[in-house]
């Protein structure tokens, strides 16, 4: 039995298999509409999330399975003080696989230690969000045709943005990736990503505050939202929340085949005028999220 807690819990070859299966599903989703009949996915969401939870649930329903779970800590026994360990022990007897989102970092790892069913981390605080990373990789692979030889810009909240950390760690395993990290000083990537992923693997990267200057170099622009819930100080959030806004003027400096990704939800950081640009693929990316979660559920449940 395998758990997915970090995006690097899958080797590169396992990841390639997952992406290949996702591509098969994209080609003919109906072929897979019954492969999980009689199986149940539990979605344990201790933190509000519309997109990720519905994406997991849609994925399981698309495979012919059923779903159960809760959408906030208030509506679970966590409100009564139950530990993650006890909750997962019980849920293990109700479902075949579970996806867990928790505001505290490491909660899904704790769950995996006490679970008798596969655990998928659906986001833990500012830490990891592996299925978003798989979604991002599938989007790039499907639309660019490759996961090598890319200049990838990350823009916005690189400090608390778990999707950024996870995607950098995942892309670090592919060849000839050049990273451009665009953020204000206060939201630069954590030291451990800089030292232990980028520098330790001798990966080319630059850090800048200037989005305009970076635009022409990019094959991929990964925009992120400055997340209110990650700040202890409201003043800092207000000062930084609108620091980058991608608009048509900035897009004019980008390559014709550049892709703009965003893990969503978007607030102000991408102007709605960009939505009609064919390079804006963030809504397509959300759709790919369902396909890659279908593939992941199939892999973890070992169904063909």
């Amino acid at each position: 039995m395998k758990h997915i807690i970090s995006p690097t819990d899958l080797s590169v070859s396992e990841l390639n298999e997952l992406l290949d299966l996702s591509e098969e599903i994209i080609q003919d989703p109906k072929k897979f509409s019954d492969v999980c009949r009689g199986m149940k996915l539990a979605t344990l969401f201790y933190e509000p999330s519309t997109r990720t939870r519905l994406s997991f649930e849609a994925a399981m329903l698309n495979l012919g399975g059923s779903i159960l779970g809760f959408a906030s800590a208030d509506s679970s026994s966590a409100a009564k003080g139950e530990s993650v360990a006890d909750t997962i022990r019980v849920i293990s007897s109700y479902a075949d696989i579970c996806a867990i989102r928790h505001p505290k970092e490491g909660a899904p790892l704790v769950a995996s230690h006490f679970s008798s069913i596969p655990v998928i981390n659906a986001g833990d605080g500012g830490h990891n969000h592996p299925t978003q990373t798989f979604t991002d990789l599938l989007t790039i692979k499907n639309l660019k045709g490759r996961l090598n030889n890319l200049t990838v810009g990350f823009c916005g909240d690189l400090k608390f943005g778990r999707t950024v950390h996870s995607l950098i760690n995942a892309l670090a395993r592919y060849q000839n990736i050049n990273f451009i990290l665009i953020s204000p000083e206060e939201l630069r990537i954590p030291t451990y990503i800089r030292e232990e992923t980028l520098k330790a693997n001798k990966l080319p990267f630059e850090e800048t505050r200037n989005l305009e200057e970076a635009m022409p170099k990019l094959d991929i622009l990964y925009m992120t939202r400055v997340q209110r819930e990650r700040f202890f100080n409201e003043e800092d959030y207000i000062r930084l929340k609108d620091i980058y806004i991608l608009d048509g003027r900035k897009m004019a400096n980008a390559k014709e085949d550049m892709l703009v990704l965003h893990p969503l939800p978007r607030v102000n950081e991408i102007s709605t005028e960009v939505d009609d640009d064919p390079r804006a693929v963030y809504f397509k990316q959300a759709q790919f999220g369902v396909y890659v979660r279908m593939a992941l559920i199939m892999k973890l449940l070992e169904v063909k």
């Binding site: 360990a85 505001p103 505290k104 490491g106 704790v110 232990e196």
Partner: peptide, 18 residues
């Protein structure tokens, strides 16, 4: 933000990375 900050029964487990 760590789960160990709210669940006191957990083992505080550390690994050497450098």
């Amino acid at each position: 933000r760590c789960i160990t900050s709210v669940e006191p029964g957990l083992t505080h487990s550390f690994k050497l990375t450098d």
